[in-house]
Simulated scan of single mutants.
Amino acid sequence: MNDDQHRAAAWQAQSLLLGYPDDRLAGHLDLLHRVTGALDAPVAAPLRRFLAHIEATPPSDLAADYVATFDHRRRCCLYLTYYAHGDTRKRGMALLSLKQAYAAAGFRLSDDELPDHLAVVLEFAAAVPDTGRALLGEHRAGLELLRLALRDGRSPWSDVLDSVSATLPPLGGDERTAVARLAAEGPPGEQVGLAPFAPPEYMPQPRGVQPQGAHR
C-alpha cells in the first residue's frame, strides 16, 4: 500500500474502534488485526494495545466505560464541532456544512448519525481521503484536546487518539495556541453541567453512533 492507502486503512480501523462497542465489534476484530499488521509502527502500535484491551475486557464493561467516558465527560466529547463552537448557534451551521460536504462526495449518513462524530469523520476520510484529511486538519486543536483529556483520564481510548494523531502532521504554532486556549477556557459558550452538545434537532441517540456497517 502507498501512504494514502495506509492512512485510509488506519482511519477506517480507528473509525470502527471509536464507535459504540456493540456486538458487531467482535466480528471485526480479525480484520482489525490484519489491518494494523500492515500499518507503520507509530499508527499501528497504539491500535494493537487497544485491541488487546478489547479482547481482555468483558463486552458489558467495555460498553459501560465507553458511555462513562464519552457521554459524561465534556472534555472527552467525540463531536468535533463542539470544541470549535460549543453550545452556540454556530455549531448548527457547522453541522449543516459537514452534511453538505458529505452529500457532495456521495457519502450517506444514517438517520441517527451526526456528521461531526469522530468515528463518522474518520470513516468519511477513509472513503474520501483528500477532503477527509482537510476536515481532520480543521479540527486538529479539538482532536489534540480530546487526546490529552483521554490520556489524563487514563482511558484506553487514548491509544486510538494517539493513532489518529500519528496520521496527521505535527501541530503547528497556531494549533498549539488553540489547544492551550481550549484547555484553559473550554469550548465557546460552555455551560455548567451535562449540557447538550447541539440543539435538540441535532442530538444523536443516547448510545452514540454505530458506524460499523453504515454507508455501505
Rank of each mutant, 00 (worst) to 15 (best):
M1A: 06
N2T: 13
N2H: 05
D3Q: 10
R7W: 02
W11S: 00
Q14M: 15
Q14R: 03
S15F: 08
L16N: 04
P21W: 06
D22T: 10
G27K: 11
L29H: 04
L29R: 08
V35M: 04
V35P: 00
T36D: 03
L47Q: 00
L47I: 04
A52C: 13
A56S: 15
L62F: 10
A63M: 09
T69E: 10
F70C: 15
C77F: 04
Y83N: 04
A84L: 10
D87K: 08
T88F: 07
R91W: 04
M93E: 13
L96D: 14
K99D: 02
K99S: 12
A101V: 15
Y102I: 07
Y102V: 02
A105R: 06
G106A: 09
F107S: 04
R108G: 01
D111M: 05
L114Y: 01
D116E: 10
H117V: 14
F124Y: 15
T131N: 08
T131M: 15
A134N: 05
L135Y: 04
L135F: 06
L136V: 12
L136E: 06
G137C: 12
E138S: 11
L143R: 01
L145Y: 01
G153V: 08
R154H: 10
R154I: 02
P156W: 06
D162N: 13
V164M: 00
L168F: 03
P169W: 01
P169T: 01
G172N: 11
G173Q: 14
D174F: 11
D174W: 14
E175Q: 14
E175C: 08
R176A: 11
T177Y: 08
V179T: 06
V179K: 05
A183D: 12
G189R: 04
E190Q: 15
Q191H: 12
A195C: 12
A195Y: 13
A198P: 03
R207E: 12
G208N: 03
V209H: 06
Q210A: 15
Q210D: 09
Q212V: 15
Q212E: 04
A214R: 11
A214W: 03
R216W: 05
